[in-house]
């Protein structure tokens, strides 16, 4: 479905991604693992069209999408759930959700999608008229995911969904992601929490200083000595 081919991205003279190639197949749950400045967020921003690669190509179902603008990427069904502090803080829960579902593909079925979100995230229905900034951390993450789902993604990108959440909440978020994936949604997840994301995903890429250092089945990576030493602290 999604294919990155030797993608290089830099901020000015600093190169953050130094030739990353990866592949996400339809229906897969793929994790990006790596430390804080390995380039995970940069990679997701690049796929979403907010950063432009200096070299390499990004393809979606064989079509070159390297130079599309962010709203065109969303129009193709690639939707990113950014960190939860990127909700619209002074808008209500309902407004955040409506905004998620306002692109041309998602707009016609917006009411129906909204109703489905209330089934998946009952807490959001109770908070509908509250400003997003007044929600708890966990509720905000739920809202961020629901807002992304409102856009009817074929491929969902998630940036650090567990960051700063209590363990119970993290488990809940991952349960939701697993359910979405088994219902057919393709997921590319960026996480510092290597254990959690390797347990949840089928395959993973380990990013190190802007390069893919390792990749493979998540289960195998979870048992590899390198990963255990570097990312799981064992």
């Amino acid at each position: 479905m999604l294919e990155l081919d030797a993608v290089r991205v830099g901020y000015g003279p600093v190169e953050v991604l130094r030739g990353v190639s990866l592949r996400v197949g339809a229906g897969e749950f793929v994790a990006l693992v790596g430390s804080n400045n390995a380039g995970k967020s940069t990679l997701l921003l690049t796929v979403s069209g907010l950063l432009r690669p200096t070299h390499g190509a990004i393809r979606l179902d064989g079509e070159d999408v390297t130079t599309l603008a962010p709203h065109e990427v969303v129009g193709r069904g690639i939707v990113q759930v950014p960190e939860r502090k990127r909700l619209f803080p002074r808008m209500t829960v309902l407004e955040n959700l409506l905004l998620g579902g306002s692109n041309e593909r998602a707009r016609p079925a917006r009411e129906a999608t909204l109703a489905r979100m209330f089934e998946t995230f009952p807490v959001l229905e109770q908070r509908l008229q509250q400003l997003a900034m007044t929600l708890s951390g966990g509720e905000q993450q739920m809202l961020a995911i629901a807002r992304g789902l409102m856009a009817q993604p074929r491929l969902l990108l998630l940036d650090e969904p567990s960051l700063g959440l209590a363990p119970l909440m993290v488990a809940e978020i991952y349960r939701v992601l697993a359910r979405l994936n088994s219902a057919g949604l393709t997921v590319l997840l960026s996480e510092q929490n290597a254990r959690m994301s390797l347990q949840a995903s089928q395959r993973a890429y380990v990013l190190q200083e802007g390069r893919v250092a390792m990749s493979g089945q998540s289960r195998a990576l979870l048992e590899s000595d390198d990963v255990r030493r570097t990312y799981l602290g064992l």
Partner: peptide, 19 residues
């Protein structure tokens, strides 16, 4: 809502498919 969203966080607005 596009106007208010783009004012509050243009990056997030772009990620929601707003031009």
């Amino acid at each position: 809502r596009f106007i208010r969203a783009s004012a509050q966080d243009p990056v997030a607005a772009a990620l929601m498919g707003i031009n």
